[in-house]
């Protein structure tokens, strides 16, 4: 057990190293550097002055020295500064990360609130009309592209019915900390969260349904029934305990999907988070921000996957064999 955890954690080191190397190479390939960025729109900047500064900040050093310096700063949380917003990238991110985490968290919670009961119903009462309905829903949620679905939700509920605001994360006029503030925040979150969650249920429902159908026929379930355990208890105490645990472990795998989704959802609902920041920065060629975002979110997915692998190996020892 301990050996598996140790080995799985060690694999992460070359992964993080590779990620940082790729991000660094990409950053170097991006047109312009920190100096061109800082002097954008400044008519007094001569080529000589820029060259002088490049020398001073070590931008003419060999790449491995630059890489070492960059990664050293990044580990300490210093990603340079954005030339568009004229502030350190870390400060910039700190203002947006809360919104994205909130969006991701609620999306996850709602996904599980929808998916777990549906998965259980479909698995327990296989081939009934309820199961068929759930399987159909699952098929739709798998096939529908997120951005099309989000747009249709926005069009229907915000524009035609007018039930929800058409964008933003909170009404500007409302004071922070009041009850109205929280209500307004929830109103703004509702549609983005539902759009993400209704489509994200696919994996969980599919997994639960299949797993319950498989577990139903296992010997320990037969034993429980033979002993006279009531049907309700067979499910709650025996089957579900077996099938639900791995779902907790899948959380870490969801991170990559949530990041991809946040780019579409935040752009469609003009929700000020990391996904939107990524798009505006890349549009404005503000590459220090882009580099930092790719590095941070990449690290997040690597760590998330590692945690999931470890939790899953504890919950289900069969996968530890490798």
């Amino acid at each position: 057990m301990l050996k598996f955890i140790l080995r799985r954690t060690l694999i992460m080191i070359p992964q993080l190293f590779l990620l940082s190397l790729i991000v660094f190479v990409l950053a170097k390939a991006m047109p312009g550097d920190a100096i061109t960025g800082a002097f954008a729109g400044d008519p007094n900047a001569t080529e000589e002055r820029k060259e002088e500064l490049r020398e001073k900040f070590g931008l003419n050093d060999p790449w491995y020295e630059q890489y070492g310096r960059w990664i050293g700063n990044a580990v300490q949380g210093d990603f340079g500064s954005s030339y568009m917003y004229k502030q350190p990238v870390t400060t910039l991110l700190a203002g947006k990360v809360g919104n994205t985490v909130l969006l991701a968290l609620f999306t996850l919670i709602i996904t599980y609130i929808i998916a777990i009961p549906l998965g259980i119903v479909a698995g327990r009462w296989t081939d009934t009309w309820a199961d068929k309905l759930i399987v159909t829903y699952n098929y739709f949620s798998f096939a529908t592209p997120l951005f099309v679905f989000s747009l249709l939700m926005l069009f229907l509920f915000s524009f035609i019915l007018g039930w929800f605001p058409i964008g933003g994360s909170v009404d500007i006029k409302i004071e922070e900390g009041t009850w109205d503030y929280i209500v307004s925040k929830m109103e703004h979150l509702f549609l983005p969260v539902m759009s993400g969650a209704l489509l994200a249920t696919f994996g969980t429902i599919q997994y639960l349904r299949n797993d319950i159908i498989d577990t139903k026929l296992k010997d320990f379930v037969k034993t429980a029934r033979a002993k006279g355990v009531p049907e309700r208890k067979v499910y709650t105490k025996h089957i579900l305990r077996n099938s639900l645990l791995p779902i907790a472990a899948f959380l870490g795998y969801e991170i990559a999907g949530l990041i991809g989704g946040s780019i579409f959802i935040e752009s469609i609902f003009s929700y000020p988070g990391l996904g939107q920041l990524f798009l505006t920065s890349i549009g404005a060629r503000d590459f220090t921000v882009v580099t930092a975002l790719v590095m941070i979110l990449g690290t997040a997915t690597i760590i998330g996957t590692m945690l999931s692998d470890i939790i899953l190996s504890i919950v289900d020892p069969r996968i530890r064999v490798e």
Binding site: L26, A256, L293
Partner: peptide, 22 residues
């Protein structure tokens, strides 16, 4: 397989967008 494991973890949408821009 170790390389593919690594590649599968990456947030590919972000990388595709970055590649397209540069």
């Amino acid at each position: 397989m170790r390389i593919i494991d690594f590649l599968m973890v990456l947030p590919s949408l972000m990388f595709i967008i970055v590649f397209i821009t540069i």
